[in-house]
Design a protein around this nucleic acid. Sequence first.
DNA 1: ACTAATGATCTAATGAACTAGGACATAGGT
DNA 2: ACCTATGTCCTAGTTCATTAGATCATTAGT
Lengths: 128, 128
Amino acid sequence: MPTSFRLDPPSGVPFYRQIIDQILAAVATDALTAGDQLPTVRALAVELQVNLNTVAKAYKELEIRGVLNTRQGSGTYVSSVRVERDEVERRRQVIQLVDEFLARAAGSGLPLAEFLQEFSARMKEDPK
Amino acid sequence: MPTSFRLDPPSGVPFYRQIIDQILAAVATDALTAGDQLPTVRALAVELQVNLNTVAKAYKELEIRGVLNTRQGSGTYVSSVRVERDEVERRRQVIQLVDEFLARAAGSGLPLAEFLQEFSARMKEDPK
DNA sequence: ACTAATGATCTAATGAACTAGGACATAGGT
DNA sequence: ACCTATGTCCTAGTTCATTAGATCATTAGT
């Protein structure tokens, strides 16, 4: 159960969402695979110096999404969903895309169509 | 001062933002042009059955953006900014883009790059 | 100068999101 | 049967966005 989770308080991103993102990233990179048990809500709460319920909220949302599988009294485990890799990847890139858009849309004098074309080309060659 | 503004309470979109959007739309379509006086904050507040400050907040934000020009004691007027058309248009399209992305990203099995390419092509031919 | 109309400011009420504290319910081993 | 570890639920406090109420400051016409 390798847990190298860390929180970034001043980021403004809610703790429970940071937890969700890091778990999704771990699943996407196969650092966590189907069947793996996650830290207990209490253990992770202590490690992240956060309340038990904050961790529970993250686990709950991921269970609803089908990523995790919680068993009361036993623990929380990674589901055997297969599409997670693409899902997470797409999500991360969409967020990055939107970020850049909102940050640069005002500054660039380009019409939207050209702007999009640029973006598309850039991601096509470097879909990092 | 043609004011056919309406608010949509159940939409979840804050009143002041709906006001902002409708004014931007009016400016974009030339229903409001440079120099035109907008309804007074009190008049529009009455018309929309909303508090004076809600309208004032919308006007204030648009003044900061350079769209409007408020003169205490006199009124609020449309600025003579020339880029408004493109600005508003781009904003609307970006919002639409993001909307579609978030709505369809999960459903489409396409890699993001192809997805973007499609979008770009579509907007290029029909930049409605 | 005065006055009426206008936007600006200050304060408060409401609700939602986030986090935390404490108590409950369930699973699994002894 | 018990006991411990687990997730779940209920409640409360804090912060922030939104809206409103009331008052102040400024403009423009008389």
